[in-house]
Design a binder for these strands. Structure first.
Length: 351
DNA sequence: GGCCAATGTACTGAGTTGCA
DNA sequence: TGCAACTCAGTACATTGGCC
């Protein structure tokens, strides 16, 4: 097997290893019977696996989302993934830290990991084990190129622009601010992963968009977002943003402010803006200064396209959605749900 | 703990290939 | 012949390990 093939195969192999190890540890620590369903269903939103847990005469069936690691940044996206499953969802992870275990318990999200940590609260089945340390081989998942930073830039453009997959690679490269060769490798990845199919004559079609969107919002806060952060800032006047219109400075609302405008559900506490220009004039105009503990986050725009939306002063809804989920906060996850129904559903609808 | 070299990984873009 | 797809060597950046 060459290096390229290994990179393609490893993620699924590693998921299988994580799943089997987590199930083994679950059986060992709880004494309960747990099985992996041999034929996972493929209708609706696809789970990574289906798990059956037996307690005397009762049987609990879960759609599983298998993750290498769960952090605060990826928590929101993972919870949203569970929402989309047809059955009750469970997170199966390589490792869940005690802090994240407490967060998941608070939100009543079932999980199990390869260290034997578990939370299930479905009376009469009540299990909560946390604090077990990870031992043994490292199972770090090798990401396909499509889910690395440059690949995520390409995916973002494909998800935001209907039929962009049929544009020349040069046009895609221009819109996504990545090199031509990167577009080629990402498109090949997407074909291998069955997210793009060839339809004669010489056309491509993006499929399984909901699944792809979910993988994007899970990978974005880990892989791409940290690279785009220009800095944290604070304004003299806390309410500066309420009347601000910064389009002339090429600065656009993301995160909570954009979500509040779109859903009228949220009272913003943190401000996220994106720009592709120097921020000096912006800082002067609104009396904003650098502060590592500040509530204003400025990020670089990693795309080069406009989409036809009624709100011209904000970033594409997919990014607002990802920003909300990346906070891992319950109020933002709820707002993200509303935003998905209102603004995002049409982007991932299969024609 | 801090520095630095070695090594690995990710990305770019010029050059090549294939096709209409 | 020109355009689009694809390849691959070079470069930048990140990570690791050894030494002081």
């Amino acid at each position: 097997m060459n290096k390229e093939e290994a990179t393609e195969m490893d993620p699924e192999n590693k998921k299988t290893i994580i799943l089997h190890k987590a199930i083994d540890m679950f059986r060992k620590n709880t004494g309960l019977a747990a099985e992996i369903e041999p034929e996972p269903h493929h209708t609706g939103y696809a789970a990574d696996a289906v798990i059956r847990i037996a307690l005397q005469d009762l049987e609990y069936i879960y759609d599983a989302a298998i993750k290498n690691a769960i952090s605060r940044a990826t928590l929101g996206g993972t919870i949203r993934q569970l929402d989309l499953f047809q059955r009750k969802g469970i997170i199966v992870a390589r490792y869940v830290t005690p802090q994240i275990a407490d967060e998941l318990k608070k939100m009543n999200i079932p999980f199990m990991d390869t260290a034997g940590n578990v939370h299930i609260n479905e009376p009469p089945l009540l299990i909560f084990i946390k604090g077990n340390k990870l031992i043994g081989a490292d199972l770090t998942v090798i990401r396909p190129r499509a889910f690395r930073p440059a690949g995520l830039q390409v995916l973002f453009a494909l998800l935001c622009n209907q039929s962009l997959e049929n544009a020349p690679f040069r046009e895609i490269a221009k819109k996504t601010k990545v090199a031509l060769g990167t577009v080629c490798m990402v498109m090949n990845d997407l074909k291998k992963l069955n997210y793009i199919i060839e339809i004669p004559p010489g056309k491509r079609r993006l499929i399984r968009k909901k699944d792809l969107l979910n993988r994007w919002i899970t990978a974005y806060p880990e892989q791409l977002r940290p690279k785009q952060i220009i800095g944290l800032y604070r304004a003299e006047n806390r309410d500066w943003w309420q009347q601000a219109d910064m389009r002339d400075l090429n600065i656009f609302w993301g995160g909570e402010v954009a979500a509040a405008q779109l859903t009228e559900f949220l009272k913003p506490q943190n401000i996220t803006v994106y720009t592709n220009k120097p921020v000096g004039e912006f800082l002067l105009r609104y009396r904003i200064r650098k502060d590592p503990q500040g509530d204003i986050e400025i990020l670089r725009m990693f795309w080069n396209f406009e989409i036809d939306l009624p709100h011209k002063n904000m970033v594409p809804p997919l990014l607002i959605y990802a920003d909300l989920l990346a906070t891992g906060e319950a109020r933002n996850i709820e707002t993200a749900r509303i935003l998905y129904e209102k603004e995002l559903d049409r982007f991932v609808r299969e024609d």
